[in-house]
Design a protein around this nucleic acid. Sequence first.
DNA 1: TTTCCCCTCCCCTAAAATAGCGAGGGCGTC
DNA 2: GACGCCCTCGCTATTTTAGGGGAGGGGAAA
Lengths: 239, 239
Amino acid sequence: MGKIERREALLGDLERAQGLEALQATILALRDHFHVDHMVYHWVSSNGEQFGCGTYSDVWVQRYVDHDYLRVDPVITGCYQRFHPVDWKRLDWSSKPSRAFQAEAIAHGVGNQGFSVPIRGPIGQFALFTTSHNCDDEEWARFTEDNRRDLILIAHEFNEKALELQPGRTPEPSRALSPREIDAMTLVAMGYSRAQVAETLSISEHTLRVYIESARSKLGALNTTHAVARALSRGLIVV
Amino acid sequence: MGKIERREALLGDLERAQGLEALQATILALRDHFHVDHMVYHWVSSNGEQFGCGTYSDVWVQRYVDHDYLRVDPVITGCYQRFHPVDWKRLDWSSKPSRAFQAEAIAHGVGNQGFSVPIRGPIGQFALFTTSHNCDDEEWARFTEDNRRDLILIAHEFNEKALELQPGRTPEPSRALSPREIDAMTLVAMGYSRAQVAETLSISEHTLRVYIESARSKLGALNTTHAVARALSRGLIVV
DNA sequence: TTTCCCCTCCCCTAAAATAGCGAGGGCGTC
DNA sequence: GACGCCCTCGCTATTTTAGGGGAGGGGAAA
């Protein structure tokens, strides 16, 4: 069975996988197939919820969650701004918390090498599919070059599965904002005062407030700043 | 040269493509390789900007832009809420404007069949990679099943290229926020009032103001909401 | 036709944000 | 050791925003 066929077979398995257990089993199979130490699918929702499956030790996962490493991990912060898959070497590990995190991660069995594929879903959903291994730079470069596309496809497939599994997704299906609301929120997010926004949109400030207020309620936000944050996270506005 | 090798060669070409002309040339080569009528990469930003390349006729593209079909096209509205690639048949073409749009599209040479891969970038960027053809359902089903993964990869690759071409990205490298500033901005972005944030962080409200103020000045933001928007856009905080 | 949403305008008060002036201790780098 | 940055706290002042009402016309969809 050639490489291509094995790849196809594994992707087929992944496509047919149903449920969290199946995903967990698939990720183990994938790790074995690629001969790497770890593979992890990690989902981060905009409200801080996390969900994932993979081969990291339970201790490390628990520690990661408990210590809120989400906000420290350079893999997260780095990939959040990028679209293309990224080798961990290209991230910024220079800050002190980053280095401490890195040392701790390695101590918990995470490989010294890593490759993470960021994936984004419809409403600001953000996920990472990470492959990690313990080897030298050359071997890792060869691996990533050889398997880059497969890893992207696997990441894509995992995210599709994860979206299906996600139970309470879109309890409020995040009603779209009206054009005027988008205008208003965009300008507010750009830092203009309400008076300026109203003038820019050629409406009264009172009308503007109605837009902001209705956008806020649509987004389920607690206040204007929160509404702007949510609109941005969900890609409803761009600043 | 077998099909797989041709595919690899084309993906390689795409990876190496530099500039808009190269992308345009690649998309023509891809269309020929897949024996379909049209392939289009279409980038849509929430503020109305559009950018794309593909094989649709100039007349149709112009008409699409002029008539603001973005807000009508079921392919756009449908894919915007999904993650997985979607066959046009599975979209909702029932509304009156949709049907009118569809008829007009077909009259302009767009195929009756279509397959669109949605892609999302870092800050609410949304793009579509569409393949369109004129054939019966059975042939199309066979095509999409055979080439689904390749199309996803191509879409991914196109978006990567498009993001590189996108001007104005990160012109000013903003100074990093301090841990405390990140805490403060994150909680503010989550909609808590200053009093709540201060209590959560166990600091006085005044200290909190200092953080917000210094974050605001670091980010070059006009006000708190603007600062939150910038911090989010730059991936400095996650909400 | 009725209902729902969008757009527009106006009132109010309390809370929040902005702006300026300060202070001191700690930690790391040059 | 000096400098810069981070963390913490104090004060006063003005301006802006938040959030709660209500009201009417228009357009699209059910």
